[in-house]
């Protein structure tokens, strides 16, 4: 196909596609050629007297049977590739993928998290997909893989990257306002590079403040930036102590973002909505413990 193939399954998908494509192109050429040929050959000024032919049983049988054989071949070709896609190897490395509006988060076996999927080359990887809110779909064009992420249901898919490089990972199930920004990347690297990346990442994470880790793992940063830029919600830069207008029960009022306000905004986000922003943040009640919320607030204080 038209974007480079970089997984073991990709070549199989492409050959099935090519097989069908060739048959289809031949069919289309045949139909178009006959159509144009007849129109030219039998146009009224050249062939004023038509010949009535009501049908031909043999022909009907031929053009029923031949397409039937062809489509069954296509079906079979598509099926065997798919069978492989759905058969997850025993030794596949599991990665837990959490999707939410509008970010991806990847968690490796040792608990380390990242917002880009990093995998070693030639290693089967099994993705377990979870959604926090609505439907999403994980798509890596270069690997020819895709699977919906369904809230309440666990779905899986697997691949083996066979070429080092960085590949786009996209959401392909419409999920609201910033659906087209729900992008990430897959980095396929050598076994050694992966091992050292993992070691570095794990060490870095241990050193990072707990609040920061939570913001990342809970996907908060999909809507709230840390650098002052406006995404979907207000930026978290300098949030502690910031003055602003919020909408409470339909009435505007001024508030200062103190600890109580921040806590309320995490537990009951739509009680006070900052003016100019949509009331769409999901409540974190029951998802985050009190200690975790404390950790987040402590971290927010440092973002001045």
């Amino acid at each position: 196909m038209f974007s480079g193939a970089a997984s073991t399954i990709a070549t199989k998908v492409d050959s099935a596609f090519l097989f069908i494509l060739v048959i289809c192109v031949l069919m289309l050429l045949l139909i178009t050629f006959l159509m144009v040929f007849f129109v030219i050959k039998y146009r009224r000024d050249k062939n004023p007297i038509p010949t009535n032919i009501e049908g031909n049983f043999l022909l009907e049988v031929v053009w029923t049977v031949v397409p039937t054989i062809l489509v069954i071949a296509m079906f079979y070709y598509g099926w065997i590739g798919y069978r492989e896609m759905e058969t997850i190897p025993e030794d596949a490395m599991p990665v837990k993928v959490t999707a939410q509006m509008w970010s991806w988060s990847f968690e490796y076996e040792n608990g380390t998290r990242s917002d880009e999927l990093v995998v070693p080359i030639n290693q089967p990887v099994k993705l377990e997909l979870f959604s926090r809110d609505v439907l999403h779909s994980l798509f890596v064009p270069a690997f020819r893989i895709k699977k919906d992420v369904v809230p309440g249901i666990r779905t899986t898919l697997w691949f083996t990257g066979d070429e080092e490089g960085t590949y786009d990972l996209l959401c392909t199930e419409y999920c609201g306002l910033r659906h087209s920004d729900m992008l990430s990347r897959v980095v396929v690297m050598s076994q050694d590079a992966f091992a050292s990346w993992m070691a570095g990442k794990t060490a870095h994470e241990a050193a990072e403040p707990a609040g920061r880790q939570l913001l990342e793992s809970q996907g908060c940063l999909g809507c709230h930036s840390l650098d002052g830029s406006r995404i979907v919600g207000p930026t978290l830069k300098g949030i502690f102590g910031r003055k602003g207008r919020v909408l409470t029960d339909g009435a505007e009022r001024d508030v200062v973002a103190d600890e109580d306000y921040l806590r309320r905004s995490i537990v009951k986000p739509n009680a006070d909505v900052v003016v100019g922003y949509p009331p769409i943040m999901p409540s974190q009640e029951g998802i985050l413990s009190d200690e975790q919320i404390d950790a987040i607030i402590e971290y927010l204080k440092t973002l001045q």
């Binding site: 196909m1 998908v13 296509m74 598509g78 099926w79 896609m85 779909s137 020819r144």
Partner: peptide
Amino acid sequence: LTGLMQGALSVNVHIHDT
């Protein structure tokens, strides 16, 4: 004919929702 391409399971996985 492009419908046939999408009917094939493995190919469909790649082109679904594109």
